[in-house]
Structure formats: C-alpha cells, structure tokens
Amino acid sequence: MRVPVMAGVIERRLLVNYRTDPEVTARLLPAPLRPQLVNGHGVAGICLIRLGRLRPKPLPGGIGMRTENAAHRIAVEWDTPDGVATGVYIPRRDTGSRASALAGGRVFPGEHHRARFTVAEDEQDLRVAFRSVDNTGAVGVHVRVSPTWPGSALFGDLAEASEFFRQGCAGYSETTGGRVLDGIELRTGSWAVEATEVAGVHSTFFEDPGLFPAGTAALDGALLMRDVPVSWHSLPSMPVRREPDRRGSRAVR
C-alpha cells in the first residue's frame, strides 16, 4: 500500500512497555518477523497517542485533524540483504476518529477499531483509557512524570530506552488478504522522551491468556513524548511467508 506522506504533531505519546516470553511472542508474529530480544526478553506494549494537525503534506497544519489513537506493538526484527532490520509489528489499532477508522486498511495501513477514549492529563499526571465500540479491547493507564529513572528489567537508563524505540520507527501491519505486510515509518528531527512512574495499567490484550498465558507478559515501565513534529512515510510491502506450525496462539485483529 502506498499512502501519501502525512504530517502532524505528536501532542502526547505514551509508550507502555511489557517484557514478554520470546516463544509466546513469536507465535503472534507472521513470518519473516521474529521477536527482537532485550536481555533475553521480548518487548511489546501499547502506544497511546494524540495527534494534532494531522494532514497530507504539503497541506497547511491549520486544516489538519486532532485524533486519539492506540496501537498494540511488538518489537521485531527481520533479515534484509543489508543485514538485520528492526521495527514493530502492530496486531491491533484503535482510534477515536471515524475518519481514521474508515481509512484504516484502505488509505492507511492496518484495520482501526473505533473506540471511545477518556483522557485526563496535566504536566505531571496522565490518565488515558479507551474501550472499543465492538467491545473487543480496552486499556486504562495512569502514569506520573518522573524526574529520575524508575528502573527497568529491559533498559539500563532513559537514554538506552529512548534509543531502542527511536530505532524501531518502522511499523508493519497485516493486510486483509494476508499475503503482505503494509509498512509505514515515523520520522522526526526532534526525538525526545521523558521517564514516568506507572501508577496503574489495564490491558485486555496483555491480560488475555489465549495470547499471553500467565507469567509470559509483565509490565516493565512507560515513556512519554510530548509536542514532537513528525511525518509518516510508506515503506515497501513485505511478503508474508506462511509457516503453519509457528503460530500456536490465535491471530489478533
């Protein structure tokens, strides 16, 4: 899928991160993707993002949309002629925008579930929650901005965590036909993250024993981005290689 270059501003992007069992994680991925491991763990999470001034380039920002969105993500790697590449696989997207839901899988990669978002935030305290209209997914997150690194089993400090996610800005989603993965890349010249302490989190995705049996997904922390100008660019589609024995768990849509 070739989509127009989109521009906008990340008004708020909350990355809630889990460390996951590599074998369980691998069963959720279409080949040729495999889990990207950090300290022996898979890395997955939820991206809760509010976009402002979203529009096709080079239209002016004044006509852009403002939307609340969520994406469940799994850090992945794959082989290329130039070596190993990294990015994320996105098994599920949710949006509060009717336009984004209609465009998902048609104009933009990935089916988008319509959802109702509830947000309460200030400079130090953020609460973001949503439930999909079809009642297939729900998330609730409460974090507080932290002046110090709260600790993580995945990353040694904020700089290490920031660089990991900066390197994973290519995102791939399955298409309706299932033969290729559509790709899109986030680009910015102003990458910056803040540390947070997680006061509470709930996710039907990570709490689903059909996807993650007990003990195979554990909360690791959350990072925050605010007021970052960005653009999104199409990537070449990636052919899917069918491996029937690989996916023991049910697929996620």
Rank of each mutant, 00 (worst) to 15 (best):
A159R: 15
F130I: 05
S162G: 15
S146C: 09
E163H: 14
A138S: 03
G105Q: 07
H113N: 02
G168M: 15
F165N: 07
V128R: 01
D125C: 03
D79F: 00
G171S: 04
P58W: 08
F155I: 04
H72N: 09
L181E: 00
P91I: 05
P58K: 03
I74Y: 08
A103S: 01
R127I: 11
T176L: 04
A115M: 03
G137H: 10
P60G: 08
R73S: 06
A195H: 04
V76G: 00
G87N: 10
N69W: 13
D82E: 05
I90T: 08
S162N: 13
W149C: 00
A85M: 12
A195W: 02
A199H: 05
L158A: 09
V133D: 03
A159Y: 15
T136Y: 05
T176A: 06
L59K: 00
T196I: 03
A103W: 09
V193W: 12
G140S: 05
G140Q: 02
G62A: 13
E121S: 04
G156D: 15
H142C: 01
V88A: 02
E77H: 15
G96F: 08
P60Q: 12
E77W: 15
H112N: 00
P81E: 01
G137I: 09
R116I: 09
G156W: 14
S173K: 03
L186M: 14
E163W: 13
E174R: 04
L181R: 04
G183P: 09
P147E: 03
D122K: 08
Y172L: 08
A85V: 13
R187Q: 11
L102S: 11
G156E: 14
T86H: 14
H72R: 08
D125F: 12
G178H: 01
A170P: 12
A70L: 00
E194A: 03
S190D: 12
S132N: 00
A120P: 02
A170D: 13
T95E: 02
V180H: 02
R144G: 11
A153I: 12
A115Y: 04
T148Q: 14
G137F: 00
G104K: 06
A71F: 05
